[in-house]
Design a protein around this nucleic acid. Sequence first.
DNA 1: TGCCCTCGGGG
DNA 2: GTGTACGAGGGCA
Length: 787
Amino acid sequence: MQYWDVRILTASYARENVVIELYGRTREEKSIVIRYEGFRPYFYLVDPPKSILDDLKKDGNVLKLEDCTLFVDGEDKKCVKVAIKEPWTVPEYRNELGRDCRVLAADIPFAQRFIYDLDLNSCVRVFGERIEGDYTTDLVVRADKFEECEPFKPSLKILSFDLENSIKNGTIYTICCAIKFKEKRFIERLSGNERDIIQDFVKVVQKYDPDVITGYNIDGYDIPTIIERSKQCGIRNLPFGRDFTQLRNVGGRFWRLHGRIIADAWWNVKREVKPKQETLNYVAKILLGERKEDVDPTKIDEEWKKDRDKVISYCLKDAELALHILEKIAVLNKSMDLATVSKLPVDDVINGRTSTLIDSILIREADRNKIGVPQTKHVRKREKIIGGYVHTIEPGLYHWVCVLDFKSMYPSVIISNNICFTTISDKGKVVSPTGIRFLDKGERLGLLPQILERLMNDRENVKRKRAESKDDDEIRYYDGLQNAIKTLMNAFYGVFASSFYRFTNPEIGGSITAFARENIKNVIDELENEDLTVIYGDTDSVFFSSPYDNLNDTINFGKEKGERFSKGGIVLEFEKVLEPFFSHGKKKRYVGNVVWPKKEMLVRGYEIRRTDAFDLQSDALNMVFKEIMKCDLDKAVKVAREMTTDVANGKVPIEKLVISRSCKSYNFYKNPDTQANVQAARKREKMGYEFVPGMKVSWIVTDGKKSPQIVEPFISGKAFEHKPDYNYYARRIAMTLARITEVSNWDEKSLLAGVQQSTLFGKDRSRSKKKERIKKTDKKLTLEDFM
DNA sequence: TGCCCTCGGGG
DNA sequence: GTGTACGAGGGCA
């Protein structure tokens, strides 16, 4: 019998004959679809009444009823396994039977059920034979059996596309594609009749047969546009799938396709990079050092009329940029690692939720241990559990700050306290700070602690292999893998500690965070007992000043503390040194210069999203941060003041005051009259400029005192003929800066924080004097001081 | 402090 | 498709 090693990319099923279809790429880098017949859906009923069983026995769609015992709600219970013919009828059964009986595991997608039951990994060796079939793939295989195989990462074929269409009437002008497979690259430029463009695009997808389709904001724009326009042109069918089926919209936001992964570059950049601005141009600049071509997309109709070739070239460039961005952030590579450790098709990792990852691990384990799999509870309002402990932070500038992190705090807590949905019990001897009881390990070892311990060991093993390896590729491989395991472990606590999930409840999540709070508070107490000033702490990290004012001694000091406070399975890791470190006394807001292990500026909680603000705001903030990081608080405050006065006096380039936002059609809004973007759009129209719903409009505030505020549209390249409300802008700037400088008078406490350290060891008097000075000059610095 | 509304990306 | 879907920021009570 022939066999193929396959990396699974997507999993689905065909209704006809109920055939499971696994799409992927082989070790030889051929595209493949694996068909498997004979697998049928099933679920469980907990101790069903006889009447239900009688009905099921008479039901022609029911294939089999089988008695079994499952561990449910803390005890073994009599259950019945119900196998039925068609996966798409399961929801009906679930709802119907759910009225009189507890139903288990009836909400697991069919293809996943299959993967779990055959315990398939992300890569499998499939035995079977080649057959004919209506697919775009190189190979169509009828599978007989699966075996394990070494994971591998084949090259994937990626197609990136972009379209340009009329703002006025929506007509698609062009679709351009950039395709990449191994070292080969292709491009396609489609233009002409709209109907032809769309149909040619379908042919291009079928011809190149990509594993991955990408582009920038294709989920939210290009894909819906193509579907919408195809309807306008009377195209009935868009067979983009590897089985010639159509795109399916999931949850209003995402798209799925049989055999191909839709990986929107925008979403992935958002997730992986969190850029402060998300436009393609900005992201291309920061990631690739490239920019878009010189076409104004807000005037696409004129541009098209003027120079078609230029617009087509612009369109192709955008497709290429999206492709390069996706490659740059290496999401496919990382996703393959995460798919390997969570044993899932790559698609589920890229487009699925974290609970999908956890399900994959946990449901298999539950099945093996005859533990009932509850269904996801649909709760409207989610009951919030108390989160991590956040230590209060005194305002001030601190020096040589050591940051220590609890290594895998939540997993450690779960393991050491045997926290699990299988161990929660009134009879338990482990009592959480919230009073919830869990059986101890001797009585019943929890599933969750078991899995997490295994993952932790796996990660250590991979790390060891990485350390032993001499080969660069191998080192990279192991590094990706250990990172993926870390991500997976974090996903566990994410799901268990903070939200509803099929296997947990707020009591369990609340217990986990309560234990964690207890841990960190204990460490803070112990550190303080050693006369160390703990500056800050959040969930699993503590910040304290080193008594030394140089890097080497500080590093040794931090290491020593980390080692000493690691005990009982909880490890405190020395993570970084900050010099200096500043906070104005608000939790979760601070700035620091990381000087070890690598140099970078760390800003938390102060970031401004450019789209929500005008340029001057972030400019001002950055300038002030720069001074603070130079330890010149005087200068920082001075800069802040000057900036505000300049704005109040109108000494500022007008473009720095422009606020932009998109505007939908007016009647879309609840009360359009109060919205600045609507006001700007209306005035823009009155001035004789075009406004199309969805367009981005720019404006400047001319009277911020009125409610709603008065704004005037700003048209780039044209002189602004109104007077900006400089006081309004000065106030906004002051408000932004006051977030940092409104340290109520750099009070004694804030000074002490630094002074103590320096005088204690008789060093660095200059620095404390500098602080004294600030204390004298800035009694209280508030909004009024700026005005 | 907490709830409600809006937006981002794209043309 | 045996299914679930963001997250930050501003305004306002």
